[in-house]
Design a protein around this nucleic acid. Sequence first.
DNA 1: GGCGTGACTATGG
DNA 2: ACCATAGCCACGC
Length: 112
Amino acid sequence: MKKSEDRVAIVKAVYDIVLTVPYGRVTSYGAIAKAIGYPNHSRLVGKIMSECDSVNTKIPAHRVVNSQGILSAGNVFMDQQNLLKDEGIIIINNRIKNWKKLFWDPMLEITM
DNA sequence: GGCGTGACTATGG
DNA sequence: ACCATAGCCACGC
């Protein structure tokens, strides 16, 4: 057994979680990491997002930001900001307005 | 294994 | 609200 398979499982879980994020809502890397059972893998989630290939996988990676509601992404941030704005989300200085209200907890879909 | 780097998070000033 | 620091994990050299 290879350890890489564990990472693959995590990647699949992350994909599944992100795909459950509804339109006009956003979540954070840490929340996803926690939801899949790896609370300290928030960084890994970010890495996975960079490899998610949202164009092909149809994964709304633009709805995933850091715990402060800030668009940390580099090459994608312009596109991400545009996409979020298109969903009715207000962005100011790379930061989501009403972040607290727009935040969607993936745990709500898993637990219960 | 060490060291640097990265789409992270929590805490403190 | 902003910046600094520490902790975290995976990857490449």
